[in-house]
Amino acid sequence: MLVRRGNRVATFALLATVALITILPIASVLMLSFHESNAQVRGFDLPDRPHFETYRNAWTTARFSTFMWNSVQISVLVVVSSVVISVLSGYAFGTMRFRGSNALFNVLLFGMIVPYEAVVVPLYHDLKWANLVNTHWSVVLPLLGTNVAFGTYWMRAYFRTVPPALIEAAAIDGAGSFRTLWKVLLPGGRPAVLTLTVLVFMWSWNEFLLPLIMLSSDDLRTAPLGLPYFSTRYSTDRVGLAAAAVMVALPIVVVFVALQRSFVNGITAGAVKE
């Protein structure tokens, strides 16, 4: 019994320590962001009261209202289109047999492990030739390409769990393939679609390399791309930078807290793809 209690104490202590080490840096930057702008903060100094000026400055003067709005537009477009496209192709790969389906699916799997660093440089020059560089399309279309590869893989896995009898019954009732998908299969697939939605939202909101390379005018910057902009322009304003960083992270953290299960299941189950 004594050993048991020792185990419990050790487990609790270890879990709590790692959790604390994870949370402290985040809490510390949050504290920093509530100081007065340009305050000389040291270590774990607490603000005398929460100040929100830096948030207001970052939002207006440092143009984060524009950057956040750009990110919202790009993310919504990418999320809606990739989910729709992935449901359609996952449906075909998961429930239909057709010539070349294995080869085509393997090409998608290969696309999932190609390091994106190897893709962006030629992509930049080709999009420049097509006059698409420095438009949101140059970020949206490549994001669609990568997300659709994962999305197809993810939705195919769901469609394969559906009992074939269900699909056959729908066919006998005279439902066409699209009607079967819409009325019979999708209602049960809501958790899979929700998980895909939050993952694609996170990946498109957090994407950094693509907008860094593709977007040169400040008006088009995304929220993550606003951070290097801020730190070169106001290099001494650490409090302001902290506020900006909090704003960039906030939308995803809110969704994470609300839909934890989808996130954790998606990231861990999605990982097994490799």
């Binding site: 729709v84 496209i85 992935s86 359609l88 192709s89 449906y91 075909a92 790969f93 998961g94 429930t95 239909m96 047999r97 057709f98 389906s101 085509l104 090409v107 998608l108 696309g111 190609v114 893709v119 992509l123 279309l141 490549p142 669609l144 390409g145 990568t146 659709v148 590869a149 999305g151 197809t152 394969r160 074939p164 699909i167 056959e168 066919a171 393939s177 079967t180």
Partner: peptide, 27 residues
């Protein structure tokens, strides 16, 4: 898995949009 809808061009129409963004922007 049933091959109910696997005939003709139907499956290819379903995967077409995916490959239209995947091939030009990744492969």
């Amino acid at each position: 898995a049933p091959a109910v809808y696997g005939r003709g061009v139907t499956p290819y129409l379903y995967i077409l949009p995916a490959f239209l963004v995947f091939v030009p922007f990744v492969i």
